[in-house]
Design a protein around this nucleic acid. Structure first.
Lengths: 347, 347
DNA sequence: CTGAAAGCGCTTACAG
DNA sequence: CTGAAAGCGCTTACAG
């Protein structure tokens, strides 16, 4: 019977076997260097540790100088549904590489980000994956906060921080391809709503095909995840007489379909809909949603791999900078179709 | 300029001000007991700490005896989409109560659960919320593993572990109500697929209304989140001539609608569909999905509150056991309708 | 092959 | 009001 805290420690094993703490520590945590304990002793130690159900005190171990193997993840709780996919993949890759993850769920405030940064720093975590730096208001400030960590990878390119490593979806490229796809289908009034900075890309696609562009095609809208918001959005957008609508997610696309149908419009015959972020479920819908498919698993995997690679570099050397774009793909399904000729078109 | 590690510590502040480490520690971490430092000194210490950007070493602090304020969360990476909601609420409630969370993402193996249990124990975490104990194969083993932690709350009732605290959706009650609702609409061949143990509840509902029950109405099926799975499921179920289908999520429901429509069946005219787990998106679908709505935010909030309450109890006293069921609600929408009389019905 | 010493950064008693 | 001592459980040199 131990006293108050029944946690058994190295010294318990040591006294039980009549050896020193050192010996026990050596056996349970062999260094790369030569094996320094006789097999006989080692076997006894291992057996006793198991029998006593010894669990190392990670706190003491870390304070004594062992570096931890934690990757701190900062993720935005408001972000798209996809973080389930991303987190799952990060966890898996991390585990495969002998790392564990610690997740900081962050809200829309700088405060909560700072809180987790302090926490991570306080626990001596040096490896960080940041996925919470796209708030429009703070996007330039946030990345700077991470300078105190040695080994940081951003998922999506951070603004105003040229020396950072990041992995990003190849958004701009696939977005332009998507607009061109709609143009090729005959659409000329492609209205986009997005929180990203897409105006130039949209315009570039028009220019490349030689069509007239109108800045009103870009609509700044926050959320399309509830009936009322979507109704308001559709009402505000219909006067533009769009022949195609580009929205931020399959969820938004499905809502728009629902509202447009209520207004007597057929999808895709009267208006095409394209989502810039695919869901599994977009395929179950009628019409199935044409959508951009980001390779989030690849993105997550690369982020971890970069962390792992850089974590191997000795403390006195510089880390390598990685800037990678992972190709995305337009999945063509039913919600976009060739335009049918109507009166008053901008051909 | 500090040497290798630029992290500044209590002793740096102490030497700079010519006071002892103790004094600095006292100021930066006042105990409940009397204020023991002069205001003048305290002000100087606070100022210097801020100027030097001092971040306490949480690892050292914990080893020296301070208990941490971490809630460890074990969550199943395969679980339903709802963990985003749950986690967000847990994080928020925890923050409000001065706790932080550490998430362990677990896969379908006992190994990954054990890994996180070791980790949490190694870091001296005593507060745990477990949401990964519903694997059919391990559901009786898993809860036992958590005995080493002082303060554990399970989300959903654990099997074979009568002394545990838990918060659970009131699944059984609302499920029976849902079946009764379908029976009241005239359905008699209500086929349910679920990984939960629903057979008895289903039967009870039939019995209560005095209708004949058939055990074939219960179908054991794992996943309905891809076209092929759903097609197979529908093909296997159609010979039972169901007039209503109860599936595990809106996602599954939407897939079933799609496949059933392909087969020329109309929803809800030919067959009603009810989902036992609501999504925001079920409302955008046509038909909008009738679904059970769990109050996951309440569940999450209560789980944290219980942890917080129990964490205040001194080490030598017993914790209080909480067993709470949070009411769920059937949201009636379009996918279930009164049955239309057809030949060969089991009236 | 094995052990005694020193120390990680902090806190908790206790003594001035 | 302030400080010197001891210790948390472990690891990293170093010495036998």
């Amino acid at each position: 019977m131990k006293k108050r805290n029944s946690k058994i420690k190295l010294s318990d094993i040591a006294t039980e076997l009549g050896v020193s703490i050192m010996t026990v520590s050596q056996v349970l945590n062999p260094r790369k260097s030569s094996v320094r304990v006789s097999e006989e002793t080692a076997a006894k130690v291992t057996e006793t540790a198991k029998r006593l159900n010894y669990r190392p005190n990670l706190v003491a171990r870390q304070l004594a100088g062992k570096s931890n193997n934690i990757i701190g993840i900062i993720i935005d709780s408001q972000a798209s549904v996809l973080w389930q996919t991303v987190l799952r993949q990060i966890e898996q890759s991390a585990t495969e590489n002998g790392f564990r993850i610690q997740i900081g769920l962050v809200h829309d405030s700088m405060e909560s980000i700072k809180k987790y940064i302090d926490d991570f720093a306080g626990y001596g975590i040096t490896n960080i994956i940041c996925m919470a730096h796209s708030y429009p208001e703070f996007c330039e400030e946030i990345p700077q906060l991470f300078k105190i960590f040695r080994n940081v990878v951003f998922v999506e390119e951070p603004k105003n921080f040229p020396k950072a490593s990041f992995v990003s979806a190849d958004f701009d490229f696939v977005f332009q391809k998507s607009i061109e796809y709609l143009l090729d289908l005959g659409h000329r009034r492609i209205v986009c709503c997005s929180n990203k900075n897409i105006s130039q890309i949209h315009q570039a696609a028009y220019k490349k095909r030689g069509f007239l562009w109108d800045k009103n095609f870009i609509v700044d809208i926050a959320r399309l995840d509830r009936y009322e918001y979507v109704l308001e959005f559709i009402n505000s957008v219909l006067p533009l007489e769009p022949d195609a609508l580009v929205v931020g997610s399959d969820e938004s696309a499905m809502w728009c379909c629902r509202v447009l149908k209520e207004k007597g419009l057929k999808i895709p015959d009267d208006i095409s809909i394209l989502s810039t972020s695919k869901w599994a479920l977009g395929d179950a819908f009628e019409p199935a949603i044409t959508a951009i498919d980001y390779d989030y698993e690849k993105i997550a995997k690369r982020a971890v791999e970069i962390i792992v690679e850089n974590s191997k570099i000795p403390e006195n050397e510089k880390l390598k900078q990685y800037n990678e774009f992972i190709p995305a793909q337009l999945i063509i399904r039913e919600s976009c179709s060739p335009v049918t000729i109507k009166k008053g078109e901008n051909v």
